[in-house]
């Protein structure tokens, strides 16, 4: 009799503890969710941009998810690269140095990007050619819609690039 009561009490104790853990888990989940980006931040998920507004040799900077995206329409005297180009003549890359996240500056004379933080350099295709950056500038997910590009959605061209491992 006494033993039975004890074991029942144990069971109740474990049940209570277990149930409390579930409650704590719920609270932790709610805490975790409070740190998620707010809806208006999430709304920045995609950005549409008209590519034809860029002149050959010109670079435009578009903001996507708070990141600067470089859109360079290459002139024939710049480095060419078929696989990393969008519509054969545009370089679309995130303007964030793959070394430590600084913003490289476009140098029109040298036709390269130069990172002011640690001296990394990228050519007109966004490939790292000097310094600490471990890889080319990232290509953001994009989709081509006629003359426009939608950043933040994965289109056919992007998927092809991704398969070849060129986007990261």
């Amino acid at each position: 009799m006494a033993e039975e009561r004890l074991s029942r009490r144990d069971f109740l104790l474990y049940a209570m503890g277990g149930w409390a853990v579930v409650g704590v888990g719920g609270v932790l989940y709610a805490m975790y969710k409070t740190w998620e980006p707010l809806p208006e931040v999430k709304a920045q998920a995609t950005t549409k941009f008209d590519l034809s507004t860029v002149q050959p040799g010109e670079i435009k900077v578009v903001s996507w998810r708070g990141k600067p995206i470089f859109i360079l329409r290459k002139s024939p005297d710049m480095v060419q690269c078929k696989d990393r180009s969008v519509k054969d003549e545009y370089t679309v890359v995130a303007g964030i140095c793959t070394h430590l996240g600084c913003i490289p500056n476009w140098e029109p004379e040298k036709k390269t990007w130069h990172c002011p933080c640690h001296g990394g350099e990228y050519d007109a295709c966004g490939k790292n050619i000097f310094g600490p950056p471990p890889r080319p500038l990232d290509v953001p997910p994009f989709k081509i819609e006629g003359n426009s590009i939608v950043l933040g959605e994965e289109g056919q061209e992007y998927k092809q690039m991704k398969e070849k491992g060129l986007t990261v």
Partner: peptide, 17 residues
Amino acid sequence: VIWIRGNYIVEDATLTR
């Protein structure tokens, strides 16, 4: 990273937390 910052970059949300 996005969770810690509360944004895609360091922003107001990051500052406040």
